[in-house]
Simulated assay, not measured.
Amino acid sequence: MKAGDLLIVGRQASVQFTRPIRFRVIRQLDWITYDGWIWLDGYQLDARGDALAQRSIFVMKAGLRSAPAPVASAVGRSRRDR
Results as ranks from 00 to 15, higher is better:
Met1Arg: 05
Ser73Asp: 14
Ala47Lys: 15
Arg11Pro: 06
Arg24Pro: 03
Arg80Met: 05
Asp41Val: 04
Ile26Tyr: 01
Arg19Met: 03
Pro68Leu: 04
Gly49Tyr: 11
Ala53Gln: 14
Asp30His: 07
Arg55Tyr: 02
Leu52Val: 10
Ser73Leu: 12
Arg55Met: 03
Ile26Met: 04
Thr18Ala: 13
Asp5Gly: 02
Ala74Leu: 08
Ala13Val: 07
Arg55Pro: 07
Gln16Lys: 11
Trp39Gln: 00
Val75Thr: 15
Trp31Lys: 15
Phe17Glu: 04
Ala53Asn: 13
Trp39Gly: 00
Thr33Leu: 03
Met60Ile: 01
Leu7Gln: 08
Ile26Ala: 02
Ser78Leu: 10
Val75Gly: 12
Ala3Cys: 13
Arg82Ile: 00
Gly63Ser: 08
Asp81Asn: 13
Arg19Trp: 03
Asp46Ile: 05
Phe58Pro: 01
Gly49Cys: 13
Lys2Phe: 12
Gly36Leu: 06
Trp37Lys: 05
Asp41Met: 06
Ser14Tyr: 01
Leu6Arg: 15
Val75Arg: 15
Ala3Asn: 14
Ala47Val: 11
Val15Glu: 07
Arg80Trp: 10
Ala74Arg: 12
Ala47Leu: 03
Thr18Lys: 15
Ala13Lys: 02
Val59Asp: 06
Lys2Gly: 10
Gln28Lys: 10
Leu64Asn: 09
Tyr34Ile: 03
Gln28Thr: 06
Gln54Met: 08
Leu64Val: 04
Gly49Gln: 13
Trp31Ser: 12
Leu29Pro: 00
Arg82Pro: 01
Lys61Trp: 07
Gly4Val: 15
Ala74Phe: 03
Val25Cys: 02
Ala51Thr: 00
Leu7Thr: 08
Ala51Trp: 00
Ala47Trp: 06
Ile38Gln: 02
Ser73Met: 10
Tyr43Lys: 00
Gln44Ala: 05
Ser73Ala: 15
Ala47Pro: 14
Gly42Cys: 07
Phe17Asn: 01
Gln54Ile: 05
Gly49Phe: 07
Arg22Leu: 06
Gln16Val: 14
Ala13Gln: 06
Asp50Gln: 15
Arg22Trp: 05
Arg22Ser: 06
Tyr34Asp: 05
Ile8Tyr: 08
Gln16Thr: 14
Ser66Lys: 05
Arg82Lys: 01
Arg80Asn: 08
